[in-house]
């Protein structure tokens, strides 16, 4: 056999091995979290807030963190949505094929790469200027900054998939750009837009570094926007930092809950995308 054929075989083998390594790292992470988290998980943990001495191994649960995270990520996603959709539409309808549209896309890509701890530090600075303490609102601001580029770029791409002729048809009937955007293009790209929203939500709910100083941490459920709020990632981190094995087990269970939420979201977004595309014209 010629050397070039042997070389080809060797490298294909290396490629397949690499793929197996990458995929097995995913399996290993999920397997570890399930294997250590599942035995420690129970219903009482999910529906109680921490009682006195929870971090020493006494009674209680992580409801404060679960709800806190849902509030934080939900609020941030709503805020990011209100900013993202107009930007994505602007890029397509008012800044089509112009250099400043490309500059904004580049800026969004760069924002995507900014570490979440920097968003945390920036949001904390904003809060100092606004006179806010660590609170649900502060956490929502920090997370919405983090989610903004993810959501906008996702929507940008979803809108890009809409067939250009649809737009032309709408214009030729006399519709304005705004009408075309809202009544034709947004409806047509709903599956993609939803995927972008869920992706951003998943990123927001899993992020710890940005809510560390902005949302604070508390054992209570937040009752207003100006109270501190707990979050799942931080609950995992704090429970794991204690020296008590019983509390560390709860950290694994909490990690399982967080992973479960994130994976469910990504499955839902896939399903939704599949189901909603029935009415999309290609």
């Amino acid at each position: 056999m010629k050397w070039s054929k042997v070389e080809e075989k060797i490298f294909v083998a290396i490629m397949i091995c690499s793929t197996v390594v990458v995929l097995s790292s995913l399996a290993l992470i999920l397997g570890t979290v399930i294997w250590r988290g599942l035995p420690a998980l129970n219903l009482a943990m999910l529906i109680q807030t921490p009682k006195g001495g929870y971090y020493l191994g006494k009674e209680g649960g992580i409801l404060n963190a679960i709800l806190g995270s849902l509030f934080l990520a939900g609020g941030a996603t709503a805020l990011a949505l209100a900013i993202s959709l107009p930007i994505a539409l602007y890029l397509h309808f008012y800044a089509e094929r112009s250099w400043h549209g490309e500059v904004v896309r580049l800026a969004l890509d760069v924002l995507w790469g900014i570490p979440s701890i920097v968003y945390g530090a920036f949001a904390f600075t904003l809060m100092l200027w606004l006179g806010l303490r660590a609170s649900l609102l502060g956490g929502i601001i920090a997370l919405s900054l983090l989610e903004l580029p993810i959501m906008t770029r996702g929507m940008d791409e979803a809108i890009n998939m809409v067939h250009p002729l649809l737009k032309e048809a709408s214009y030729s009937l006399g519709a304005t750009r705004l009408e075309t955007a809202l009544k034709i293009v947004v409806r047509q790209s709903i599956p993609g837009l939803l995927t972008a929203v869920l992706l951003a939500f998943g990123r927001g709910i899993g992020d710890a570094a940005s809510v560390l100083f902005t949302a604070g941490f508390t054992d209570h459920l937040p009752t207003s926007l100006f109270e501190p709020a707990a979050s799942l990632p931080l609950a995992i981190f704090f429970q794991l930092s204690t020296p008590f094995p019983a509390v560390q087990d709860r950290a694994y269970a909490s990690a399982l809950v967080l992973t479960g939420i994130v994976l469910t979201l990504s499955l839902i977004s896939r399903r939704l995308a599949g189901r909603l595309t029935e009415h999309v014209i290609r």
Partner: peptide
């Protein structure tokens, strides 16, 4: 692989 990108960083830490 997309799923791997979606796993929260704190879960990577736990792993």
């Amino acid at each position: 692989i997309d799923l791997l990108a979606g796993i929260p960083s704190v879960v990577y830490g736990v792993w």
